[in-house]
């Protein structure tokens, strides 16, 4: 089986500030990659490269053998930590919007039976994320966890090949976060998604991922902190999905991250 996402010596810098350097790896279809690292290590920048809102300064990023589109597209769904849902649309309309864009090129709005059909389709996805009780509510009436469920349904209705999650549960309470973990794992298995998830929570990374990447700098210039960028320093396959942690690995990575963060 050939690689689905391929990174070929990717670097990213803003002027003199090198963020990422020399990333090369392959990801198969259906992997769940979690990206961890200290703040400012470039994990979010990497997600933006995948999303298409940033371009790599050098190197290639391939999806299914072709260079990845330099603009966000329906192939790559995204859930941000905040602002992923549209406040002026109710729950069903938020999810149906993706269908309306596709089916009504001029107005981006469906009417009559076409609209009804789109809303019904939206309801199916809302059921999949457990939001079928709040179809006509507006996002501001939903809790943080429910808003993220909505954002997931919104992304999934476009049947994306890759699902990108940018610290999606960072602002949620621990209890709700646990429910969301189960939901995401369930959706990942059910729809055989390829997922990239940025998180600052190492436990979350271990628990959810089938593969864990740690972003960190390998070289440091004490006089110019931005001279060298981060790269993937650990690439761990995580076989078990029962949530058990390999405590030695965890401790080693934890130490490494806190060491970088302290600098």
């Amino acid at each position: 089986m050939s690689a689905f996402i391929e990174l070929n010596k990717i670097s990213k810098h803003y002027d003199d500030n090198v963020v990422l350097e020399n990333l090369s790896t392959k990801v198969m279809e259906g992997e769940f990659v979690t990206l961890v690292g200290a703040s400012g290590c470039g994990k979010s920048t990497f997600l933006k490269l995948l999303l298409g809102t940033e371009r790599a300064s050098s190197g290639e990023l391939l999806m299914a053998g072709c260079p990845i589109a330099q603009e966000p597209s329906p192939e790559r769904g995204i859930v941000f930590q905040k602002y992923s849902v549209f406040p002026h649309l109710n729950v069903r309309e938020n999810v149906a919007l993706g269908l309306e864009f596709e089916r009504s090129p001029r107005l981006g709005r469906l009417f009559g039976s076409a609209r009804k059909q789109a809303l019904e389709q939206a309801e199916e996805w809302l059921e999949a994320v457990g939001l079928d009780q709040s179809l006509n509510q507006y996002p501001h009436e939903l809790s943080g966890g429910m808003q993220q469920r909505l954002a997931l349904a919104q992304a999934l209705i476009k049947k994306p090949k890759v699902l990108l999650l940018d610290e999606p549960f960072g602002a949620l309470d621990p209890g709700i976060r646990k429910d969301m973990h189960e939901l995401v794992l369930g959706l990942w298995k059910k729809y055989q998604l390829t997922v990239f998830m940025v998180t600052h929570d190492l436990h979350e990374g271990f628990h959810l991922g089938s593969r864990l990447w740690v972003f960190d700098k390998v070289r440091h210039d004490p006089h110019a902190a931005n001279r060298y960028g981060s790269t993937i320093t650990f690439d761990l396959p995580l076989r078990s999905q029962d949530g058990s942690l390999d405590s030695e690995d965890l401790a080693a990575i934890n130490n490494q991250i806190s060491a970088t963060a302290a600098m």
Binding site: E71, P74, F86, G108, Q154
Partner: peptide
Amino acid sequence: VKAQTLGGNSWQIILRV
């Protein structure tokens, strides 16, 4: 960005979002 990942073009995003 989200609207773009839902497949909206510039005009549709201006109109609906």
